[in-house]
Design a protein around this nucleic acid. Structure first.
Lengths: 211, 211
DNA sequence: CTATTGTTTGACCAAATGGTCAGGATGACG
DNA sequence: CGTCATCCTGACCATTTGGTCAAACAATAG
């Protein structure tokens, strides 16, 4: 017995195998397209083609272009903050921060599209994400900045601004995802930047924090 | 006596006062829009409105949307590389690199739209800039990386990968332009990030390079 | 003033775009 | 097999978009 409402399967967890498969295909295709073209630059036709589905079929699973984009962004917010959440106040300070850097660099290597989706959103002024940034993200950063400040006051790492320390980690690691084509073009073909980047960043943060 | 060709004033230097004024207005408006929305996301109507001109009037001065974007990009390439060009092989190594960092940070503060235009282009895979990146940009970076390597081999600064050193400067400085809204959201309102950023980066590169 | 050149616009066009809908195809399940 | 819910599509629609054009409107040189 249907109450007349369309299914809108994206609101609840997908129920059938087909739903799960197609929802995934759509979100994956949308990630590809949105991360490259931005929200306005992406079209439903591009996404449909990348997903191997027809445009009306997309709109059977998601109510609108906005809905697809929104779903991607909220999925992203979670995974995006995970590496920082793991920063352990009880750990060894310099090692905790270096481990965070390594986790973020891995994300740049393994999830470059997500990184670019995020970058696109921020560059545009975060019109669809401001709330999460002023809320969830700021709260987490404030908390971890306080942890780092504690380490500094205990004399366990050098005195640096904790906020700009975190910004620097974001900037340096995400650069290898967002500016990937530039990095590779400059280094020349067949040159994997990531191993070098890891040792460079390790050296950088070791020298910055020690003493 | 006209040969039948439209004027296309953008090819040569603007001749009349009106041309100069309107070309400037268009490029300024286009910078605003393209840097926010990306190439595909920007529309001629947005640009026309921001410039205070009608859409057909835009197309009197520029032959197409592509032409406006292209003009912006080639203007950009010049100014973008200037700070690195100024890196003086005859200068004091650490001071030269710090001065480069400062120049780039100033550009992020004073030309954030240009920075975002560039970021947008790279994130999209540099479809309209690959040539300049593999040519002009790579050549300049190779040259300056060699200079830095010389300084390292002379024992005048610490041993770091010159390429990743340059990438790090790009990443850290451009972050304050491209991710401006995020930085400000995290730091809270009425908080200018740039003075702090400058001393943070000075400390970072001093510690990285000394010894 | 007048002719010429430079500037602007309203009206228009074809293609692209986000979205709808009725009906048909394809499961799942007893 | 039949039935019901899920899944899919071609045709369609209104709006947006990049771009054209003829005609109107300045600016200015002679």
């Amino acid at each position: 017995m249907d109450d007349g409402q369309p299914p809108e399967p994206q609101n609840e967890r997908p129920r059938t195998r087909i739903q799960r498969r197609n929802t995934r295909a759509i979100l994956d295709a949308a990630l590809e397209v949105f991360s490259r073209e931005g929200f306005r630059g992406a079209t439903l036709d591009m996404i449909a083609q990348a997903a191997g589905l027809s445009k009306p079929n997309l709109l059977y699973y998601f109510s609108s272009k906005e809905a697809i984009h929104g779903e991607l962004l909220s999925e992203l917010m979670d995974t995006w903050l995970d590496p920082l959440r793991e920063l352990d106040p009880a750990g060894e300070p310099a090692e905790e921060i270096l481990a965070y850097v390594r986790r973020k660099l891995e994300m740049s290597r393994d999830m470059p599209r997500e990184s670019r989706l995020f970058a696109n959103e921020i560059i545009q002024g975060a019109p669809r994400m401001m709330e999460a940034i002023e809320g969830e993200l700021k709260t987490l950063v404030d908390e971890k900045a306080a942890v780092i400040r504690g380490w500094i006051e205990a004399g366990r790492i050098a005195d640096v601004d904790p906020y700009h320390l975190i910004f620097s980690i974001w900037a340096l690691t995400q650069h290898y995802a967002d500016f990937d084509v530039q990095v590779r073009a400059v280094l020349g073909p067949g040159h994997d930047p990531f191993p070098e980047a890891e040792s460079f960043l390790e050296m950088l943060y070791t020298r910055l924090l020690n003493r």
